[in-house]
Design a protein around this nucleic acid. Structure first.
Lengths: 275, 275
DNA sequence: CGGCACGTTGAGAAAATTCAACTCACGTGG
DNA sequence: CCACGTGAGTTGAATTTTCTCAACGTGCCG
């Protein structure tokens, strides 16, 4: 991990404004996050009552390569990324890995364990990370107090469902070239959303991780990235990627398969307005 | 759709016990469901206050082939399957379909729209269905009143996330034979959980639907099912399937690919017990 | 310096798709 | 009542895509 990368991508989050918060963050030798900071990371509109809430969430710091949780581990807390990059993956009985996501700042981890009370996946840091611990019991209790939090949790889980649906679609219908192109585009827009360049960025994950995420081998990922570079759509140098022709990447399509099926008409359901 | 299928799979749900509920279900020419019935379908332990809650959720009935909602449609209600079979799917710009799930009794539909307020997928009935409408606003309001409902919603969404993760894994690492075998096994256990036979069941969906769900063509699905039948693991006659050797199906594995990677040790995070 | 993970590239093999043909069941309309 | 069209399912043959296996270069870290 070069100093450049750290400069570009692992810079500490914006310093907190008020001195008492900063003090709060470091009490007892640990870092802490206020409700307000958590709400801000989760993109929930804050309120006065939130900003004045004295409750603090504990942070942990993990080094690159360290797991945050493993498969089968009992679940009792969710994790919110404050800084850094991770991967989440399923591991099957023969040790084969299926990467499910590459979480970064603001992403919530461990959500697939709420239903079963055991983690269904593992999360591993790809760089040094700061993680906010959100005890699940505490969160549901808070959800009953703050409608905003309850709704934001529903929305976060729903978006994760939609994201996985989109990934299923990628794995189900796209060929290798389009999978890689879509992956690079999505990484670009995520970096852009975090305030970095969406055209030129540093991939934290290996080709093998990308391949696992996209249902391809590392060799195929390497070959496709090479061919995208040869056609001028991107430039690559190891993990550094430049998207030279974003529209070109977007316009890539798998070769047409079967003829379209006729879609049935949508039907207006009989709705009763008032109960 | 033969009379046999209807007998086996589309039988009306258990009649409600109390006459006033039955009366309530049919008021104003529509069918209605009590809070208690909704809780029961969602597998939430009921309470006295739930059982006495007079609130009723409207039902709709849709015929086989009819869509319940389409992609892009504004979201304001979730759907709970009371009876029948459906498919949910993404449709891309060239009309290609990606089946995401085959919901049946007790399954919640439309959850991928909560985050974006627009439906990300479409749901289409594969048989005549009874669907309970759950207005989202109403649900979040109720969630603030009943902790059980809030938690059950989180758990339902979480399980859907985990289910999609498992499907991503199937699409990412398994070959066609294992995909089909896993699919049949999962259909079997779902039928079993609903009280039907888990060994002998009728598939409502076409080979093309299965192929779309598994990221395969209908021809490949057909060939694999044929070969599973030839090796004696299953028997098929059109959409009727008998799982003759469940352990045999379970033991199928994709051919090994790359050597295992060494896993890092899980690390005990430094936790502060008391805030 | 050596070991090792990462990345790339080539050649051959395997898996799944594509295209095509054919059957079957079903419903519609003449 | 039958002809017809349509969607579903199956099967075969050729093609394409991706994987597998292998070799090799690079950079990093102990």
């Amino acid at each position: 991990m070069s100093p450049l990368d750290d400069l570009l991508f692992d810079a500490a989050p914006t310093p907190l404004q008020s001195p008492e918060l900063e003090a709060g963050r470091q009490s007892r030798g640990f870092l802490w996050s206020t409700m307000d900071e958590v709400f801000s990371l989760l993109n929930i509109p804050s309120t006065a009552s939130i900003r004045s809430d004295p409750f603090l969430f504990q942070n942990v710091q993990i080094k690159a390569g360290q797991p945050l949780h493993t498969i089968g581990q009992p679940f009792d807390t969710l994790y919110l990324v404050r800084s850094g990059f991770l991967k989440t993956a399923l591991i099957d009985d023969v040790g084969e890995q299926q990467v499910l996501s590459f979480p970064m700042k603001g992403d919530l981890l461990g959500v697939d364990a709420i239903g079963s009370k055991r983690h269904q996946s593992e999360s591993v840091a790809l760089s040094d990370c700061e993680i906010i611990l959100l005890p699940y019991k505490k969160l549901t209790a808070l959800g009953l107090l703050h409608e905003g939090l309850e709704i934001a949790m529903f929305e976060t889980l729903s978006r994760e469902i939609a994201r996985r649906g989109a990934l299923i679609n990628v794995l189900g219908v796209l060929n290798a070239e389009v999978r890689v192109a879509r992956f690079l585009l999505s990484m670009g827009s995520r970096f852009e959303q975090m305030g970095y360049s969406g055209k030129r960025f540093y991939l934290r994950m290996t080709r093998r991780h990308i391949g696992s995420y996209l249902g391809l081998t590392q060799e195929t990922v390497s070959r496709v990235m090479g061919s995208l570079a040869k056609t001028g759509l991107i430039s690559i140098s190891g993990k550094m990627v430049i998207l030279d022709d974003i529209d070109g990447l977007r316009s890539l399509r798998s070769v047409k398969r079967h003829p379209n099926v006729r879609r049935p008409m949508p039907v207006q359901l009989a709705l009763v307005k008032k109960v």
